[in-house]
Nucleic acid binder design. Sequence first.
DNA 1: GAAATAGTGTCTTTAAGACAGTATGTG
DNA 2: CACATACTGTCTTAAAGACACTATTTC
Lengths: 270, 270
Amino acid sequence: MLSAYMLGEEKGGGMGKQKSKTKKTKAPSADEAAFLAGHRLDAFPRPSVAVDVVILTVRAAALFVCLHERSDHPAKEQLALPGGFMRIEESLDEAARRIVKEKAGFDDIFLEQLYTFADPGRDPRGRVITVAHVALIEAARFDASPCPKGRIEVPWPGETGGPVDVFVDSDGPHSPIELAFDHRDILGTAVRRLRGKLDYTPIGFQLLPAEFTLRALQDVHEAVRGEQVNKDSFRRRMLASGHLEATGSHERDVTWRPAELYRFIRRSAV
Amino acid sequence: MLSAYMLGEEKGGGMGKQKSKTKKTKAPSADEAAFLAGHRLDAFPRPSVAVDVVILTVRAAALFVCLHERSDHPAKEQLALPGGFMRIEESLDEAARRIVKEKAGFDDIFLEQLYTFADPGRDPRGRVITVAHVALIEAARFDASPCPKGRIEVPWPGETGGPVDVFVDSDGPHSPIELAFDHRDILGTAVRRLRGKLDYTPIGFQLLPAEFTLRALQDVHEAVRGEQVNKDSFRRRMLASGHLEATGSHERDVTWRPAELYRFIRRSAV
DNA sequence: GAAATAGTGTCTTTAAGACAGTATGTG
DNA sequence: CACATACTGTCTTAAAGACACTATTTC
């Protein structure tokens, strides 16, 4: 059974040596070129591919998400995650950065792919799948964006998962707002991912200004986890992690003893 | 800034009450229905969407992957991950299960979405993005499939990431084989994900038969991590985890003292 | 000085690593 | 019996939680 493909022709076209560490397309053989010329990918129906971005920050011990009011149907005038269709010449990362820039005004943001949502029927326009992304940004930059801002409440513990509730605190009803499409589920997946990364990556690096107090870092962790953490142990763990470096200066304009400011050390490659 | 979208019309069409816990499409208003009728999603070029599946097992202290010899261009007669195009009416999960069944012969397999690979130029036929999945299966079932089997060697430690090397051990050259497209990168991402899940989910459940020895479970962990683990600590940790249950019976046909067999307890919902 | 938060030192508890020693099978 | 592996008990070490105590600021 194993031998069938070993007996085939010796992989024509001089591709045997290439290490293929890069993602470049190999030069096709004559046979393959002829095949590709006659090949029509559009012989089969294709879905539309969208990109949605969950832009998160931490402020006042809570998670906030950047939203966008839809100007067109479907879900016209409803709040949604910033999103749009991937262009045919873009990578997903490029599409996500374009959308973040166009709909929230952020340049140069930390961005990571999250999950692809593709339930048939998730979009009334037809077959639309969306590759959701997560972006993290510090509160000061977040607040400077004109996007509507939603406060997130997570109704499940740990990394259980599920949709989350979003509140717009300005005034009005204090019940969760409705988001377009399956965006509450996407948000839930984003929070779950963030909680999972918290213990293993210096996630605060993206959510805090360059210099910050240990208390501010602890606030970030508590907001993401949705529960309090032990202060003593947290300090010890962070200082022992090797990710932090004391600056020697201290915070100002506080009504209590000013805490020392730290910065993240960029981890050297191993 | 926050108030603009609050002042809009009161979200016409009676959608205010719906809790939208389900993913059903809401009944559109007359306005929206008219919009949708005139809307053409296909006004913009769309990519083709494929699904590739990394089917993994652990055998003899190594990771193995189920492959598939391509019968068509591009990369004709080269080995690749089992994959295919998502059909327009399918969910991703359905497409992945169909592909696993068609190309590897497995029914009822543990399956999870991994990552979406979408570099322009990753497929010479044109714009093809692929939603990669990971499937886990026990060695006995894996061996029963006629698919070509590749042994995986991971050249990076921990969760560093990067492409992995694949060997076909039957005979022939003892250098890594080349896989079609970016499938070595996809495999690398799958191994990274598996290592990440190892400590937090009873992953062995999918990779072992219903009853197994602690040594077999340790072999799974060591194969996935690519390094040995402390036996004493591993036993204590597993027994304390609450995931395992002793069966009272023991393994047979071994030339040493037979070890007790355990089974996984299905975790009760919290 | 009172109040509030930052930061230190130390005791206890818990889990991991190391390792000695016992148990139970094969030959 | 020797030998290989399964399993148990205990000592040591490291990290987390708890908590008392000191330090530095504003009022």
